[in-house]
Design a protein around this nucleic acid. Structure first.
Lengths: 343, 343
DNA sequence: GTGAAAGCGCTAACAC
DNA sequence: GTGTTAGCGCTTTCAC
């Protein structure tokens, strides 16, 4: 392995000078700097991240910790963050928590807190205090952790506004019997639910109905596991039970995909018999048959805001400042496709 | 930040003893070890990865470098590798190369070669020698890099066998005019193509036709960009041109998704008018309308083999051994769904 | 503008 | 069994 000493020797300077030169420090004479750079190139020198990180406490790497890598929404989100990080000269490393507490702890404790300058974390089973303890004082940006009294910076998906827009859209295109798939009517009775994604999307629905002067019936709200196969079975059950409906808001596109497939299994035509709209904006909605309308969270905006909050903390920490935690909300767009387009 | 010195002091032992105790070294008396562990727990000690890695050259982290995180196949593959790594007590970090050479180099050079004990790499634009130079002597397992004279261990997807099975399946269910979407008939004229995924899937097709005594016509093989939207347009063009066909093998599920959508746009019914089968086995094939048949690469098997090769190298390197590079092929299954099921 | 030297937190010989 | 010691490769005062 070629180290900085090798480069310094080849360039005829000391290790310190080599270090400065390679990082573009102003103090080094242009000619010297050039000589060092050339030597590094010739020797195929690459700086040792562990050593740099150990010594300086900065690595230029940020961690992204998410539930499940093999699901469209989290993987598209990770990709967006990766690209956004790259724009700022940072390297993003993505780790899968598998939605298990042990794994979340292991990840925060190991790579993340030790190597990464900061972390973008989609928390599942781990409390704020635990994150605080495990993060080693490095900045953390939480995804969708809307607590009334936030401890960390966070970026929220536009749950309330998006859900509201979805319901309004269904009503606007003429739906009169709307189903909401993803949570019970009385889910909000559980206090914790209010801050969760499902609860917040539910609130958006209620807001929309209220604004439109509609009194929703509890039977319109149907709980299901947020997995495609469960949503498909839920659709079967609903059709088989004879419930009437002409519009459906699915709390995620994953539910939407399964639900639409389930309706198709039972011969329900979309959008003729029922219009369907989902939430998230995953790519595959655009290739489904029919193409699926959705409330598309702007992942670039989300990534931009998350990385931005991290960068702010870096700068602040460097300047010895602190500021209270901020919560930003990502933009969204209502994407109307075939599943809610009636001729 | 709490360091090992703090733990050692709290437990009333030296740093070395603390280090041994925390790593479960046999030499430390059980009582001492327990005392150290308790102290570490009380102080919320977490071992500094950079320091460990710098000193011992091992981190327990493996890198996964892939094209695009927001596409189903690579993200499902990364997830499989993450989980397989976890089974061996390794942490997997995933990085997106964005299919750009600069990025591939940056990733190999930075996190990967410096922190990771080994790398699973899906190479796009970087040569074997470059990988060799950038990997810093750490083991590398390549994905789908079938060179006649391999330099690294690698795991291949079952291209030839899978494509052969796909064509045979189409013929078995009665297809007589089969289209292959993803590569030109004469793509193999380019030598490099023979080792690429597209070329190898083409070879599988040729093998199948030969085995079945069918002489394929060049016009049956249609090139398209491997993106859903391009495949959709390709389907439009094919139908509009009046080419007749009753079976389609798409070289990837992503193509399949777009192609089927494109056929649907033109009123071609699947599987009644044409049967369609893809390749890869991505999750969404199971929820499409119709559900899509596919040659499903066994990602668990692929992950198992890739991580296994890495582990072998770790052990060998530790024992001072070397062995010639090995190339393994992942298993696959033919998954028949609605798109190739005729009543 | 450049070099000498200290030390980040940890591990692994080696000594006792 | 446990402690002492010497670095891993780098950055960063502090001299000059």
């Amino acid at each position: 392995m070629v180290t900085m000493s090798d480069v310094a020797k080849a360039a005829g300077v000391s290790r310190a000078t080599a270090s400065y030169a390679l990082r573009g420090d102003e103090r080094i004479a242009p000619a010297t700097a050039e000589r060092v750079r050339q030597a590094a190139l010739d020797l195929h020198y690459t700086t040792n991240l562990s050593a740099r990180s150990l010594r300086s406490g900065r690595s230029g790497v940020i961690g992204v910790a998410i539930f499940e890598l093999d699901h469209p929404y989290p993987s598209e989100m990770s990709a967006a963050v990766s690209r956004q990080a790259a724009r700022h000269g940072l390297e993003a490393i993505v780790q899968e928590t598998s939605n298990s507490k042990d794994n979340e702890i292991a990840i925060l404790q190991k790579v993340t807190s030790q190597l990464c300058d900061g972390t973008i974390f989609s928390p599942g089973n781990v409390s704020d205090e635990e994150i605080r303890a495990l993060s080693g004082g490095k900045p953390v940006v939480l995804l969708d952790d809307i607590s009334p009294d936030p401890v960390f910076d966070s970026v929220a998906t536009p749950c309330e506004q998006g859900a509201e827009a979805a319901i309004e859209h269904l009503v606007n295109i003429g739906c009169r019997k709307i189903l909401v798939i993803g949570a019970h009517y009385d889910a909000l009775a559980d206090d914790r639910e209010v801050t969760k994604v499902s609860g917040r999307r539910l609130i958006g629905c209620f807001n929309a109905f209220e604004k439109l002067g509609i009194t929703p019936d509890p039977s319109q709200f149907i709980h299901t596991n947020w997995r495609t196969e469960d949503a498909r079975r839920t659709a079967h059950a609903i059709v088989d039970s004879g419930i009437e409906f002409d519009g459906v808001f699915c709390m995620t596109d994953t539910i939407s995909l399964g639900f639409v497939r389930g309706l198709a299994d039972r011969g329900v035509r979309i959008p003729e018999d029922a219009a369907v709209i989902g939430f998230d904006g995953i790519n595959e909605c655009d290739y489904y048959i029919p193409t699926l309308s959705t409330i598309a969270t702007d992942l670039n905006d989300l990534a931009c805001k998350a990385v931005g909050l991290l960068l702010e903390r870096f700068d602040n920490d460097a300047a010895g400042l602190t500021r209270p935690p901020r919560t930003l909300t990502a933009d969204f767009t209502l994407v109307q496709r075939e599943s809610t387009t009636r001729r």
